[in-house]
């Protein structure tokens, strides 16, 4: 299937090289693992509220169909599957998909991983209750085109989560200079300043695609507790939630 794709080839190659280390919480992907609780908590809380589920139920997502775009090694797909969701994970990198498949098998989880793109899925007519778009928009070549395709994937009454990094001086200082060059949490070149995305640049295309913004929040790092927390400060990392009306 060849449709118009917005994936940047250089970005894909860089992540493929790192793929084997996805699942080591003390390795290169430690920052992403550290990020997990705050992301998972946000998703669990809002999906439960939206679909009238009990947020304390370890199987709250039963019967919901999830799509994780840019699933990487499956760091989000596996928790969503444990919570009872039927999960499809897509990533343009076949290496990532192989790593994710291998790991899901070892974890004893059934996850449908596909080396494809949001654009191809949308063209194929796939639809989901929840679309996860976490830490992806800052890596795509054309944000509005990409988001329009993602919006198509959300069923009426469904949700889309977007998480990314704001294009501000503070984000440049912390997410690029500090995280990549000083603390070495991420390999240099993981993020480039020009590709970072402001909230309005997400909300605009999503609104045009018929989605309404439900909620948004910042995510900040507490160095004393070595933990990420939700906050009102959206100048750096942030998450937002959009819904497609029924």
């Amino acid at each position: 299937m060849t449709t118009k794709t917005t994936v940047d080839d250089a970005e894909v190659a860089r992540f493929s090289a790192m793929a084997d280390e996805w699942w080591d919480p003390t390795g290169k992907f430690r920052p992403l693992h550290k990020f997990s609780p705050v992301r998972l908590g946000y998703i669990k809380e809002h999906v439960s509220a939206h679909f009238a589920r009990n947020a304390e139920d370890p199987a709250a997502f039963k019967g919901l169909r999830f799509l994780d775009i840019g699933c990487g090694g499956g760091l989000l797909c596996e928790p969503m599957t444990r919570l009872g969701a039927e999960v499809i994970g897509v990533d343009p990198s076949p290496v990532n998909i192989e790593v994710a498949r291998l790991h899901a098998e070892r974890s004893g989880l059934q996850i449908d991983y596909r080396a494809t793109t949001a654009e191809d899925l949308a063209a194929a007519g796939e639809r989901f209750d929840v679309v996860l778009n976490m830490e992806v928009v800052e890596h795509v070549a054309d944000v509005p085109v990409y988001l329009a395709a993602c919006a198509q994937l959300v069923k009426p009454g469904g949700l889309m989560f977007v998480a990314t990094i704001n294009r501000t001086l503070k984000a440049y200082a912390l997410a690029i200079v500090a995280a990549e060059r000083v603390l070495r949490w991420l390999p240099p070149g993981t993020h480039s300043y020009e590709k970072l995305v402001k909230p309005a640049e997400i909300e605009g295309p999503l609104g045009e695609a018929g989605m309404t913004i439900v909620e948004r929040c910042g995510v900040t790092y507490n160095p004393l507790l070595d933990r990420w927390n939700r906050s009102r400060d959206m100048d750096m990392n942030y998450m937002l939630l959009a819904a497609r009306p029924k």
Binding site: E78, P79, S107
Partner: peptide, 12 residues
């Protein structure tokens, strides 16, 4: 961890 769908034996 179970409520978040995390692997309860994971080191983190």
């Amino acid at each position: 961890a179970r409520r978040l769908g995390q692997d309860i034996g994971a080191f983190d």
